[in-house]
C-alpha cells in the first residue's frame, strides 16, 4: 500500500508526508523523480532518512526522524513553514487517520481519555493542502472499520480527504460517498465492503489490483 501511495506523487509537486505510515512513502520514491518534500519544522527539500550514526542532530523531520538535505534545500522558521501550507503552495499531503467519514472528514489527533497527543501541524495540512490523501490500515487493532458513515472522534478537518490508501484497497471520497478504485492483491471487493463502516460504491467491470 505504501508503494501504491507513492505513485500518487507526480513530478514537480511540493509534498508533505505526515507522521506514521506516510513517512515510509519516501523509501518508495524514484530517486530521479523531481519532487520537493516539505516538513513542518522548517525544511523544504528533504533527502533520504539517515541512521543515528551518520545523523546531524540539528536536522530532523516533524516526526523526529533524522533526515538529510538535497541540493537546493531551504530552512525556515515555523511561521514561514505554515505560511507555505496555508497559502496553497502544498500540492499534496499524506496523513495518517484514526477515522475517515464518507464525506471526507478526518479524525487523527485525539482519542478522548486514551491518547491525546495534540494535532501538531495536522489541522493546517488537512485543511489547506491542495490534495489530502490518507494512508491507514483498513481497520483498527480490534478489527473495527476506520472508514465510517461519520467520525465519532474529535475531527481534525471536515471534508478534506480525497483518497484513502489502505492495506485492502484504494478508495476515493466522492460527493456520493466512498468509491472503490483498486483492490490489494488477493483481497475481494466483498471483503473490503465487510471491513468498511459505510456504503462502498463498486466500479463496473474488472477492478484493478495493486
Amino acid at each position: 500500500m505504501v508503494a501504491r501511495a507513492a505513485r500518487e506523487i507526480a513530478p514537480g509537486m511540493v509534498v508533505n508526508l505526515g507522521i506514521g505510515l506516510p513517512t515510509k512513502v519516501v523509501d518508495h520514491l524514484d530517486p530521479d523523480l523531481s519532487v520537493c518534500l516539505h516538513t513542518e519544522n522548517g525544511l523544504s527539500g528533504i533527502g533520504p532518512t539517515l541512521p543515528p550514526e551518520c545523523a546531524n542532530s540539528n536536522l530532523i523531520d516533524a516526526g523526529g526522524a533524522y533526515v538529510s538535505t538535497v541540493p537546493g534545500s531551504a530552512f525556515f522558521d515555523s511561521a514561514v513553514s505554515f505560511a507555505l501550507v496555508r497559502s496553497g503552495r502544498l500540492d499534496l499531503t499524506m496523513l495518517g487517520a484514526f477515522e475517515v467519514s464518507q464525506s471526507g472528514d478526518l479524525a487523527n489527533w485525539k482519542i478522548p481519555g486514551r491518547f491525546s497527543p495534540g494535532a501538531g501541524g495536522g489541522i493546517e495540512l488537512a485543511q489547506k493542502a491542495r490534495r489530502v490523501v490518507v494512508l491507514t490500515t483498513h481497520t483498527d487493532r480490534a478489527g473495527n472499520p476506520k472508514l465510517k458513515d461519520t467520525c465519532t472522534l474529535p475531527i481534525t478537518a471536515r471534508g478534506c480527504v480525497a483518497r484513502i490508501f489502505t492495506d485492502m484497497a484504494v478508495i476515493d471520497v466522492t460527493p456520493a460517498g466512498f468509491a472503490l478504485i483498486e483492490l490489494a492483491h488477493g483481497v475481494s471487493a466483498a471483503e473490503v465492503c465487510a471491513a468498511t463502516g459505510a456504503a462502498l460504491a463498486l466500479p463496473r467491470g474488472d477492478i484493478p489490483t495493486f
Binding site: 513542518e40 505560511a83 494535532a119 501538531g120 501541524g121 489541522i123 493546517e124 481534525t156 471536515r158
Partner: peptide, 28 residues
C-alpha cells in the same frame, strides 16, 4: 494548531493584538 501557535507568537512579537484565521474552525 502548530502554525497558529507560531502566528500568535509572531503577532505578540510584532506588537499586534492577534490574528484572524479559518484554521480549526470546526474543531475542539
Amino acid at each position: 494548531a502548530q502554525g497558529i501557535l507560531a502566528e500568535r507568537i509572531r503577532a505578540g512579537g510584532a506588537g499586534l493584538g492577534g490574528i484572524l484565521t479559518d484554521i480549526g474552525e470546526e474543531t475542539e
